[in-house]
Design a protein around this nucleic acid. Structure first.
Lengths: 218, 218
DNA sequence: TACTTTCTGTTATGATTATATCATAAAGCA
DNA sequence: TGCTTTATGATATAATCATAACAGAAAGTA
């Protein structure tokens, strides 16, 4: 009942709120005003209040927000009060890194299997997970409920594998390949454009050095 | 002289254009209209023309864009026609994955050193790089020119290390830690919020399943 | 060469997103 | 208890961003 088309801009900010509220709790701070939180986060208080009010009224006039309450509300809103089952496709560098990353498990993201097509990797243990043959993926998807598939495979294979995943009924794809995954309605693709991000950094560095040169001329 | 405050929205789209133009070249397509490119990318032709025109006039009426020319212009705009020297701080999972990722080197991002504080890792070889003691980082920064530092260390250490980096004169930080790095003017921080991204996926999956339930009721 | 089509760069409009304002409710305090 | 302060949620305004419209230049064609 809290669903009146929330904009992506708002959604993308929620995890950051969640992180800051977690930090407040770690420091035993149990109330906070939008003004104070805004200052901490470097944004406007107005934006914070607007963002929260997309989902309900969690604060109280003259008091502010109960941090513990707000933290749990946001947790519920983001949907991380549930447990998700995840498979990792591609046991290369990034796949292995994600498999070993403990934070995900702590937050209810359970990696239940890993796949690769490389015979040298199949059968190997990454953390506590054995790498399975990607040929067995369709069967695996029939037998197991998978919420999210991580795509950490090269560009050229990503498109084909994504079709397998989608026809296997997986609704969420966390994509690390530098391609745009085509997915039907109902399937969510969230991409982590590593290369793009590095290029953005490159752009901003170049821009900065241009500005610097201009300043030197003055 | 192409610097009239380009919006971040535009900047973030440039690497994607670059990728698509590269694909066109790979397929020997040497001219393209904004209309055709728009269709390929799933955006409007208007946006494409506006985006490019922030940086100059690269097309020709009645013809379209010369792919090769545009590709190189965008390369120059993004700033990846240069070579960058990079150090990786934190030789854990993500740090190792990035060190082994060949694509970066190909694009002119040269990883020249890796640091960690873990005695078990110091001295180890990751790819062709020896992991150096993070205690030696300040000295290293004195002796070497470093354009970009990758921060792939735990949250709690990220803030302290970022100070070391900044006072060592590094102008670009590619941050993989789930903290907001405070940096003075002139230092660019580009973050890859992995956890946030996964949470966004979680939100969108939950939202989707709510919509599904509503549809079933009809 | 004349005419039509294509397609850019630019300007105008529309939509979305962020910020400021304000009425009002609770809290703090004398 | 009455008055002041704080701070929300809602509404109004401003800024940003995306799309549409259009004039005109080059390309294609008869």
């Amino acid at each position: 009942m809290e669903n009146k088309n929330i904009s992506m801009a708002v959604i993308k900010r929620m995890p950051r709120y969640y992180r800051y509220l977690g930090d407040l709790l770690d420091n035993d701070i149990l109330k906070i005003s939008s003004k104070d939180l805004a200052q901490k986060m470097g944004i406007t208080a107005s934006q914070i209040r607007q963002d929260f009010n997309n989902f309900g009224s969690f604060g109280q006039q003259g008091y502010g927000y109960d941090v513990r309450l707000l933290y749990h509300e946001i947790k519920r809103i983001i949907g991380i009060d549930k447990v998700y089952s995840i498979i990792i496709i591609g046991a290369g560098n990034i796949g292995q890194a994600l498999a070993n990353y403990q934070n995900f498990k702590r937050r209810g993201f359970n990696i239940i299997a890993m796949f690769d097509k490389n015979p040298k990797l199949i059968g190997e243990l990454i953390g506590k997970l054995e790498v399975l043959d990607i040929e067995t993926l369709p069967k695996f998807l029939e037998d197991n409920s998978v919420d999210i598939a991580v795509l950490s495979i090269p560009k050229l294979e990503a498109e084909k594998v994504s079709e397998t995943i989608i026809s296997g009924g997986v609704k969420g794809i966390w994509n690390f390949s530098p391609v745009d995954i085509k997915a039907p309605e109902g399937v969510i693709v969230e991409s982590v454009p590593l290369t793009d991000s590095l290029m953005t950094l490159s752009y901003r560095l170049s821009e900065e050095s241009i500005l610097e040169r201009i300043n030197l001329h003055k």
